[in-house]
Nucleic acid binder design. Structure first.
Lengths: 348, 348
DNA sequence: CTTTGGCAATCTCCACATTAGAGTGCTAAA
DNA sequence: TTTAGCACTCTAATGTGGAGATTGCCAAAG
C-alpha cells in the first residue's frame, strides 16, 4: 500500500499527532492538534482529517470518546515520509565517544559498553551483537602445543581479528605431526569463510596423510572449533527503562518479554535478519511476527569490525522517538566501526 | 539476639505461619493457623502467641485488622531453627544433571546453563559467577608470537585451568628475547596467585635484563594481563519469574532492581562476600544493606573448579521457599564442582 | 494459671453509583 | 470547504456502603 497521495494537511496532522503521542502516551484529540500545533484550523476541521486518516488505517481509536493513536501503518508512513533527522546533542555524542576508549579492553567490553550507553541515552533497550565470525575468511591457522595435554588453536581471519581456542588432547602429539597438520589445514582452508569451513570440513580433510587423532579434533562436531561465536555474544542493557513504560504495565506481558530477552537466540536472529545492507533499518510492531515483542519497534544497524560485521540497535515500544533514535543508532554504529576497525581488534 | 528460648508452641506457630505465608503471600490470621494446621488450639489462644511473637520482633502486622507476616528476624529464626530440609524431586535433579553435559563447551556455557536452570526450577533469579582467577596460583606462563604483530600469552593456573590473552605489539620481537622474558616471568612469578602478581608485578620485574618494551606489556595497567576476569563473568537468569511476584508490583522498585542487576559489579561483590566458607549461606532482607534488594533474600553457595572457586545462588523476595531452595542450590553447587573438576576446564 | 468463647472495634477491599471531563460525529450555517 | 454547536459516548476519578476478616480484650470455663 502506498500512501504517497496523502494531502499536505493530512501529512501535517499525522505528523503532529504522532509527535504528540510519542511524548505523552495519551490518545491525541482534535483540540490538541488544532491549538497546540497552531495549524490555523478549527478542531472540527481536524476531526474530518482524522476520520480520513483512520479510514486509511493510519490511526485508530482505543474507544469512541478517546483521541486517536497511530497504528503500525501510521508509524510506518511517519517514519518513511515525515521524519526529520534530529541532530544529536553534544552530551550524547560525548557519551558515545567515551565508549571507544574501552575498545582497548577487547571487543566484549566495547559491545557491553555500547549497549549500556545505547540504553542510557535512548531510554530504550540497547542491544549489541558481536561480529559474525561465520562470515570471516580464514587468513591463517596456528596450532600450538601447550603444557598439560592441551592444544591451542589460533584462528586469524582476514581482517586481522583473531580468536584462540584451547582444546584438550589426551596425550602429547609429535610436533612434526602437528606442523604437518597445520600446513595441510592452511593449504586447504585459507580464504574460505568459517561458515563454509564448518559445513565442508569433513569432505575437505578426507584424503590426507595426517594423524587421524588430530584430524578428529577439527571435524568433531562436539568440539566444534569453527563456531567461534562465544556463548555470550549479545549484550542487552536498559531493561530498567522498559519497565517504566506504560506499554509494559501488563505484568504477564513484561514477563514474557523478559523471557524472550533471556532466550537471546530468537532476538539475535531477528536483529541479524533485519540489519542487512548499510544504514539504519526500522522495524515497526507487527512488521516483525514475533509474538512477545508485538507493540515494539526496532531501530537497528550494522557495524563493521574489519571485514566482519555485527549488529547493534535498540528496542522499545512502537511509541518511540524515532527521529532521535535513528541519529543515535546511526552515529553509534559509525563510531563502533571506527573503533573496531582502527585498532584491529584482538579478542578478549 | 538469641531466640532459642522460644516455647514449643511459639516455634510451631511461627513455622506454620511462615509456611503458609510463603505459599499465599497474604497476611496469616489466627484462624488459619488453628484450623488448617490442626494445632488443637483455639484461634484465641493462637492470638496470644502471635502477640508474643510480634513483641519479640518476629512478626508484624501490615495494619490493625490484618493477619501477620514475618519480619526479617522471623525468617532468620525460621531458617536457623525450624527448617526441614526438603528432598529434591526427581525432575529437578535431572535438570541439574543435564547442565553437566554442557560442561564440554567451556565454563561460560556451563555457568550460563546453570543460572538458567536455577532460575527455572526455583522460580527465582538464578545467578552464577565464574571462578575467581585472582585466587589461582600461576603454574606456568607461555609467550607465543603470532603473525600480524600479536603476542599470545597463555596463563595456566595450578588446577589446570588456563586462559589465553592476545595482545598487540607494535613490531615483531626477537624470539630469543621473548623466551628469556618467559623464563624470567616463570621464575619470578610461579606459585603466586594472580591477585598477588597483579599487585606486585611492578616491583618484581624491576631489576631484570629483559627488553623494556616487553616488560611494559606485563606491568602496564592499561593492558592488565593479570585480570583474567572476563567482562561477562556473571550470569543472571529468570528475571521473568520476579516480575510476577507481588513483591515487585511497584514499578519503580522493579526498575531500580533491574538497574542494579545490570550494574553487575555490586551484585557480584555482594554474592562473593556472602558465599564464603563451605556450604549454603542465606542472607535475609535487611541483613544485606543494599537498598535496591531490600525485601530480597539470597541463597548462595561456593563451588569449586579445580583449585579455584566461584559462587552460585538465587535471589528472590524474602518470602521464598527456603527449604526447597537450599536443597536445590546445594545440589547444584555440588554438581557444578563435580562437572568442573573432573574435566579440568579449558576456557572457552 | 491456661484456654476459650464472645464481642466490639478496626481496617481493607470490592462493588456500585455518580459525576466530571474529554472527545467524537453529525448537522446546519457561514 | 470550513466551522460552530450540540447530543452522545465512554473513561477515569471519586465517593459510599457494606461484607469480610482479624484483632484485642474480657470474662467465664477448665
Amino acid at each position: 500500500m502506498s500512501f504517497e497521495n496523502l494531502s499536505n494537511r493530512e501529512k501535517k496532522v499525522l505528523q503532529n499527532l504522532i509527535n504528540h503521542y510519542i511524548q505523552t502516551a495519551d490518545p491525541v484529540g482534535s483540540r490538541v492538534i488544532a491549538n497546540k500545533y497552531r495549524m490555523g484550523l478549527s478542531p472540527a476541521t481536524i476531526r474530518n482529517t482524522l476520520q480520513d486518516l483512520e479510514e486509511m488505517g493510519l490511526l485508530q481509536q482505543p474507544h469512541t470518546s478517546a483521541g486517536r493513536i497511530p497504528t503500525d501503518h501510521g508509524y510506518r508512513v511517519f517514519v518513511d515520509m515525515l521524519l526529520k533527522q534530529e541532530p544529536l546533542n553534544a552530551g550524547d555524542t560525548e557519551k558515545i565517544q567515551s565508549m571507544i576508549k574501552s575498545s582497548q579492553k577487547g571487543i566484549g567490553m566495547v559491545l557491553s559498553q555500547t549497549s549500556k550507553i545505547l540504553g542510557d541515552i535512548t531510554n530504550q533497550l540497547g542491544v549489541s551483537i558481536s561480529p559474525r565470525f561465520e562470515e570471516g575468511r580464514l587468513a591463517r591457522l596456528d596450532l600450538i602445543p601447550v603444557s598439560g595435554g592441551k592444544l591451542l588453536v589460533i584462528v586469524t581471519v582476514e581482517s586481522g581479528l583473531a580468536r584462540s581456542i584451547l582444546i584438550e588432547i589426551e596425550s602429547d602429539i609429535d610436533s612434526k605431526e602437528l606442523s604437518h597438520m597445520q600446513n595441510v589445514l592452511n593449504e586447504r582452508l585459507s580464504g574460505l569463510t568459517l561458515g563454509q569451513i564448518r559445513k565442508t570440513i569433513q569432505k575437505r580433510l578426507k584424503d590426507t596423510d595426517c594423524t587421524p587423532r588430530l584430524i578428529k579434533l577439527f571435524i568433531d562436531p562436539e568440539i566444534d572449533i569453527w563456531t567461534l561465536e562465544e556463548n555470550e555474544n549479545m549484550f542487552i542493557m536498559g531493561t530498567d527503562n522498559l519497565v517504566n513504560q506504560p506499554e509494559f504495565s501488563d505484568r504477564s506481558r513484561l514477563s514474557e518479554f523478559m523471557k524472550f530477552l533471556e532466550e537471546k537466540k530468537a532476538l539475535k536472529e531477528l536483529i541479524e535478519s533485519k540489519s542487512i545492507g548499510e544504514g539504519i533499518v526500522i522495524t515497526i510492531g507487527s512488521e516483525c511476527s514475533i509474538d512477545q515483542i508485538q507493540d515494539c519497534s526496532l531501530v537497528t544497524s550494522k557495524y563493521r569490525a574489519g571485514n566482519l560485521s555485527g549488529s547493534i540497535g535498540i528496542i522499545g515500544p512502537t511509541r518511540m522517538p524515532y527521529s532521535k533514535l535513528i541519529s543515535i543508532v546511526e552515529y553509534t554504529a559509525q563510531s563502533l566501526t571506527k573503533a573496531l576497525t582502527e585498532s584491529r581488534g584482538e579478542d578478549e
